[in-house]
Write a protein that binds this DNA or RNA. Sequence first.
DNA 1: GCCACCGGTGGC
DNA 2: GCCACCGGTGGC
Length: 225
Amino acid sequence: MSDSVAGDFPPDPLLASGAFISSAGDGTLDSSAKRRPIQGGIGISGSGESVRIGMANGTDQVNHQTESKSRKRAAPGDNWLPPGWRVEDKIRTSGATAGSVDKYYYEPNTGRKFRSRTEVLYYLEHGTSKRGTKKAENTYFNPDHFEGQGSNRVTRTATVPPPPPPPLDFDFKNPPDKVSWSMANAGEEGWIPNIGDVKVQDSVRRDWSTAFTFITSRNPSKVSA
DNA sequence: GCCACCGGTGGC
DNA sequence: GCCACCGGTGGC
C-alpha cells in the first residue's frame, strides 16, 4: 500500500533530476586535502566516520516511537534535513572527550559545513551562516538574479564552484499560489506538498528543493578582503 | 546522565 | 585568516 508513490526514493535526491552537483572543486567529501595531522595515529580517520545521506533512507530502523521530543534531541533520524544534505558523524580521537561524536551537516551544492541543526536551519532561512560571515547579509530570494546569472559580474572567489546550471522546471516567476503541506507519516517522510487536492509529484518536489538549495547557496559569503 | 550546541583555540 | 577539533555547558 505504500510502494506506489511514497515508497522510498532513490538514494539520490538531487542528482536524479539533473545531476550537477558541481562540488568537484572543493573536494567536499574527502577533506583529506587539508585536515590537520591527527596525532596519535589512531586509525579512525577512515573507518571511524560514517557518512549518511540525509533524507528518508534510514527506513530500516522503524523505531520512531517518540516523535514529539522537544527542542533538543528532536532529531532521531535526520528528518528535518532537506533532501540532499549529508550528515557526517565525526568521532573525536583525542582529548578528554575522545570518543564522543560530533555531527556535521553538509550542504549539497557547495559542501558548506555546519555544526548543528541550529546552524543549518539558520542557513536555510537566511541563506548565510552566522559564523564566519561578518557582513554580507544580502542574500535574499530574488528571482531576477536567477536569469541574469549568465554573465553577471559577481566576483565570486574560486573557492566555490560556479553555481550549478539550473536544470530545473521551477518557474520562479509563477510559483504556485498555495501549497499545503501534510504530514505523511510522522518521522518518516516528513511533509508532502499538495496544490489544491493534488499531491505534488516527487520529481517536482525535488526540483523545488534543488531550486531552494541553489538559491540559498549562491551567496557571496567568501567575499572577504 | 546523556546529548546537542557553541565558543574558543591551535595548527596550517 | 581559515578550518578543524576539543572542552564545557545547558537543557532535557
